[in-house]
Design a protein around this nucleic acid. Structure first.
Lengths: 561, 561
DNA sequence: CTGTTGGCACACCGCCGACAA
DNA sequence: TTGTCGGCGGTGTGCCAACAG
C-alpha cells in the first residue's frame, strides 16, 4: 500500500477545489432547498442558525447565551455562496458570506427577487430509498423500471442478457462504475458489480437514499441522502456546544456592529429550517396578516424527493423564546396539522414558510376549487408557488371566475419593484386600490360571496374535516386592519435599526444604557413595543385560557412584529 | 438485522454515561498529559485554545478575531474535569469547567500544587505501533514477548499449543475478545481470532498504535492512539472556523467579564500544547529568567509512549502574535534544537514547557553531570521533574558536591506555600537568603566556580556541539538583575488584574479608554510596559539585526513579562 | 525476537432465477 | 413491478509455519 490515503478521512479538501455540481448538490439537499443567489439581499436569523447548531450537536443546550445587542434578524447582502460536501459523509452544506447592510440598492432587491425564481432541483433524476436487499451483501441494487428507462443510457436489448457499464460521479467527482443488467424472471433492471463497494464505502444502510441524475451532457451523477437518524452527530471534541452557540451569535453580533462580513454554514439536512431567507420572500410573507385559526398549507419533502403539501391551522402566535429572542418572527406561529402524524411536522413555523389560505374558506376542501391546478407531486417548485397559493385560496377571483387580468396586480402581494416605488414616493395609493389581499376584511368578502351564491359554499361542506380547536369568528374579526397605518410602521423600524448597525458594540451598549435611563423609547427593543401599542384600528385578542402558558397570544398590528 | 444501530455513528452518548477509565484515558492521551485536579487553580491561555481549534480544523485561519478586552491569560478555578472519548474515533478529550477568579484561597493554591504530583500514566501497560502485517487482513497481531508476559494473564504452557481467550474493554466499555496463542517457530505470542474485526471496526492502519493496560483488578484495558496524520479533521459543516475561533474567545471574554464559569474541551492529541496550566507549575516557571542563548531541555513523547528529553537553545524572545496577543507569554520563546529533525519539534515554546539549564554550563554535556540521574526512558513523570531539572542544571550545588540539604530550600523555585507566606507577609527575606537561583547573576556564579576548579569546566568542552547562533556573552550579561526589585513587580501586576476581572467587559473598555487618555500607567497593558521601562539594574538588549522581523527581542526585567 | 511471505481451508460475497407480495 | 430467498461459484479472509533481518 503506497501512501495510504487514510480511507478513514480521505484527503480533506482535495475534492473541494473543483466546484461542486450544483444540480447534484440540490438533488442531495432536497426539493425544498433553494439558496438565495450571491449579490442578493437576505434576512438572516441568528436564532435559526443557533437551532442548526443545536440540531447538529444533537443535544438540547440548557445554556444558550443571550446577546441583547443582537437583533433577531439581520438584513444582509449575500456576497458569496459556495456549495460543499463533507468529504467523509457526503453531507451537503453551503457556505455563505453575509454582510449586514444599512441601505441597499434597487439592483440588490431585484436580485433578491430573482432568487425566488430559481429552481435548482434537477429535472432528470430519480431517488430511491434503499431496501434491505439493496444494502445487503447478498446482492445488488434493484433499479425501479421507470427510473432506469428515464435516466440510464438505453440498453441494447438484442444482447442476452442486455447489459452495460455505467459510470457515475459523486459530489467529490469520484467515479463509480456499475454493471447495469436487465435480467431475471420477470425481467428487471439491476446494478450488480460495483454496487456493494459503493454501499460499503459510503456506509449506506437500509433507509438511506441514493439519487441518480442525468445532467445536460448526459453524464450520470450519483448522490446519497442519509436517513434522518443517521445525520452526523458531530461529537465535537473541539469546542463545547456552548462555545459554538456563542461563536455563532458573537460572529453575527460583531458583524452587525461593524457592518462587516461574516461567514456561516447552512446545512440543509441538519437544520430544521432555513435561516437565510431571500428578502423578497420575507417581504412577501410580511404582507400576510397571520391570525389565530388561519388555515395554511406547507410544503414537505416526500420519500422520493418530491414535495407534498399538508394543511394546518395557526393555533397560537407568540415568541418561541420570550427571554432571549423577544419579538422575534422566527417560528412565532404555533400550528396544528390536519393529518396528525405528530412529531414529523413542526409545531412551530415562521410566516414565510407557509402558504396562507384565507380563513372564510377553510371549510372548503381544496379539490373543488383547484381542478385546474393539479400540481404534480414530485415536480420542482417554481416562483409562482406563492401566487398559486393565493390563486388557490381565492379562486373565485381568479381564472375560474373570469377575472383574467387580476392576477398581476391584485393577488400575490406586492412585487418588490412596486413596493419600492411606493416606499420611495411615500404614497400609499396601492393599498387603497386593492393591494394587501389578506388584509382586506374577510368578513366583507365572505358576505359578498355568500350573498352572491351561498349554495356554492354549502354544497361542499367539508367532507370529514377535523374540528378546528380555536374560535374562528374571533380570529377572523381581527383581520380588520388598516393597511394605511401599517405600512409606515414596518419601515420605520428598519430605519431605526440602521444607525445602530454602524455602531461598535461597546459604544452601542453604553448608548443603550443611557437610552434606557433617559429615553427608553429610542432603544431598538423598546421601539418594537411602542409600535405595537401604537393606536391603530386593530383589535387585540387574548386567548390565554386556551393557549399554553409560554405563548403570548397578543396580536400586534404591525406586520413586522 | 434488528434495529440497525448505525455502525457508522454508534449511539452517541450512550457510553458516555459511565465515567471513563482514567488510567486508560491517560494511556491514550500520552505520557506528557497531566490534567490539573478539580478544585485547583489554573492559568488558561485563550491563545492556546485558539491554536487547538486551528489545529483541529487543519487549516490556517487567516482571519483570527482580536478580542482586545480578553487578556492573554486568565487565572481560573477549575471546577470540573471529565474525561471523554469520541464515540466514533475513540479520540480522547477532557471537558473542563473554568471560572475566572479574582482572589483565591490558600487551599486552592495547595490543590494546585498537588496537581503537579499526580501522574496518571498507568504502570502496567504496553504500547505498540502497528506494522503492516498487524493491520493486514492476512493475519493477526504479533505481540512483543515482554509485553505479553508482563500484561497478559500467564498461559498454560503445558497445552499444545498454549492458548487462551483474552477479553479487553475499550474506552467505551465495549469488550473485545481475542484468541491469544503462543506458537510458531521460533515461538511467539499472537492475537488471532477477533483481531481483524477490532482493526477494521476501529479503522486502524499501519502506524497507529494500540495499548494494553492491566488495571488494579487485573482487567485488561485496550486503547488506541492514531498516527498524527490521521487526527480527526473535523470538516465542520456546522459552523465556520471563524465562528469557532470567535466562540472560543467570546466565551472566555464573557466569562472573564462576569467571573462566570465556562466550559472548554481539551484535546491532548490534537492540541499542539496544553493551554490550561496548573497555577503552581506556571508560578514555578515564572521564577526562571529566560534569556537569549539559554540552554534547556524539553520532554517529548516517544513512539512507545515513553518520554525523551531533547536539548535546545533559546534563540529569541518575543510575542508570537504581536498584533492580537501583545505581551503574551504563550510560546514567546523562539528555540532551536540540537538534533535538527526540523518540523518534529516546535520552533516556539512557552516557559513552563521547558526545563532550563543555567547558561554558563551550556557547554557541559549532560552525561558528565548526571551520572546519578539515569532517568529510565518510558518511566512515568513525577512531580520532582522540575526539581530534577535544576539539579541536573546545577549539579555542583547538589548531591555530587556535598550540599545535601540544599535541595529543599535553594533550588527548585519557591514552593507555593513558601511563596504565599512571603506574599502575605510582604517580606522578601527569602529572596535575600538565596531563592530565585536563576536570577542570581550567572557571571558571579561562573566566577566563583571557575575560580574554585576551572578544570572541571574546561576538561569537558562539549564534544561536537552545534555552534550557537546567538551571542552568549551578550545574552548572559542581562541575567544581572536585582531580585529585590523584581518580586513586587511580579505580583503587583496580578493584583492589578483583580479588580478588572470583576468588571463587565463594556465598562472595562470604557474604563480603559479613560485611563489611556488620562492615566495611562494604570491600564493593565500599560502596566507591563511601564514596569519594563522602570529603572532597574537590568540591561535591555536589542538583537533586531539577528532576529526575524516579527520577533521582539526586548528583554524586560519583570519575570512576569 | 519479530516482520513478512507462501500455503491452504473455508466462509461469505455476490451473481443467478424462483417465487410472492 | 420489485423485495426476498435458496442455489452455487469464486474471491479473499485468516490460521499456520517457514524464513530473514
Amino acid at each position: 500500500m503506497k501512501a495510504p490515503t487514510n480511507g478513514f478521512l480521505p484527503n480533506s479538501g482535495e475534492g473541494e477545489r473543483k466546484s461542486i455540481n450544483s444540480e447534484l448538490w440540490h438533488g442531495c439537499a432536497g426539493p425544498l432547498v433553494s439558496l438565495p443567489p450571491a449579490g442578493s439581499l437576505v434576512v438572516y436569523f441568528p436564532q435559526g442558525h443557533s437551532e442548526q447548531v443545536a440540531a447538529s450537536m444533537q443535544k438540547q443546550t440548557d445554556f444558550i447565551p443571550s446577546y441583547p445587542n443582537l437583533p433577531s434578524k439581520l438584513i444582509c447582502m449575500l456576497h458569496n455562496v459556495t456549495l460543499h460536501a463533507d468529504t467523509e459523509t457526503d453531507e451537503v452544506y453551503a457556505q455563505m458570506t453575509l454582510q449586514p447592510v444599512s441601505k441597499y440598492e434597487k439592483e440588490a432587491i431585484l436580485a433578491s427577487d430573482m432568487g425566488l425564481k430559481q429552481s435548482r432541483q434537477p429535472s432528470d433524476f430519480f431517488c430511491k430509498t434503499l431496501t434491505a436487499s439493496d444494502t445487503s451483501t447478498h446482492g445488488g441494487f434493484s433499479v425501479p423500471r421507470r427510473a432506469a428507462e428515464k435516466i440510464f443510457p438505453p440498453l441494447d436489448y438484442s444482447m442476452q442478457p442486455p447489459a452495460q457499464e455505467l459510470v457515475a460521479s459523486d459530489l467529490h467527482d469520484n467515479n463509480w462504475t456499475f454493471r447495469h443488467i436487465y435480467r431475471g424472471q420477470p425481467k428487471r433492471h439491476l446494478l450488480t458489480t460495483g454496487w456493494s463497494v459503493f454501499v460499503s464505502t459510503k456506509r449506506l444502510f437500509a433507509g438511506d437514499s441514493v439519487l441518480f441524475i442525468r445532467d445536460e451532457k448526459s453524464q450520470l451523477l450519483l448522490g446519497i441522502k442519509r436517513a434522518n437518524r443517521q445525520q452526523s452527530a458531530l461529537s465535537s471534541s473541539v469546542i463545547s456546544s456552548d462555545s459554538m452557540h456563542i461563536g455563532v451569535l458573537a460572529a453575527a453580533a460583531h458583524a452587525a456592529a461593524n457592518n462587516s462580513p461574516f461567514t456561516i454554514f447552512f446545512n440543509p439536512r441538519a437544520s430544521p429550517s432555513e435561516f437565510v431567507i431571500p428578502l423578497a420572500k420575507y417581504n412577501k410573507a410580511m404582507y400576510t396578516q397571520a391570525s389565530l385559526g388561519m388555515r395554511f398549507r406547507m410544503v414537505f419533502e416526500t420519500e422520493e424527493s418530491g414535495v407534498r403539501r399538508y394543511m394546518g391551522t395557526i393555533t397560537g402566535i407568540g415568541d418561541m423564546d420570550p427571554v432571549r429572542w423577544k419579538n422575534s418572527q422566527w417560528r412565532n406561529l404555533q400550528v396544528g396539522w390536519d393529518e396528525s402524524t405528530t412529531g414529523e411536522r413542526p409545531s412551530r413555523v415562521s410566516l414565510w414558510e407557509i402558504e396562507p389560505v384565507v380563513t372564510p374558506f377553510y371549510i372548503c376542501p381544496p379539490p373543488f376549487f383547484r381542478p385546474k391546478f393539479p400540481k404534480q407531486p414530485g415536480m420542482p417548485e417554481d416562483e409562482s408557488d406563492i401566487e398559486d397559493a393565493f390563486k388557490r385560496a381565492m379562486p373565485w377571483l381568479g381564472d375560474d371566475f373570469g377575472m383574467k387580468d387580476a392576477s398581476s396586480s391584485i393577488f400575490p402581494g406586492l412585487s418588490l419593484v412596486q413596493w419600492m416605488s411606493m416606499q420611495q414616493n411615500n404614497q400609499f395609493s396601492a393599498a387603497q386600490s386593492g393591494y394587501f389581499p389578506s388584509m382586506v376584511s374577510p368578513n366583507s368578502l365572505h358576505g359578498n360571496l355568500s350573498s352572491d351564491d351561498p349554495s356554492k359554499l354549502l354544497n361542499f361542506h367539508a367532507p370529514v374535516m377535523p374540528a378546528p380547536t380555536v374560535q374562528f369568528n374571533k380570529a377572523n374579526s381581527q383581520n380588520q386592519v388598516n393597511p394605511l397605518q401599517q405600512l409606515p410602521a414596518v419601515w420605520s423600524q428598519q430605519q431605526q435599526l440602521q444607525p445602530l448597525l454602524q455602531t461598535p458594540i461597546n459604544q452601542l451598549q453604553q448608548q443603550r444604557q443611557q437610552q434606557q435611563q433617559q429615553e427608553p423609547h429610542h432603544s431598538p427593543q423598546q421601539q418594537q413595543l411602542t409600535s405595537t401599542s401604537a393606536p391603530t384600528t386593530s383589535t387585540t385578542i387574548t386567548a390565554a385560557t386556551t393557549a399554553p402558558a409560554t405563548t403570548t397570544t397578543v396580536m400586534p398590528t404591525s406586520s413586522f412584529k
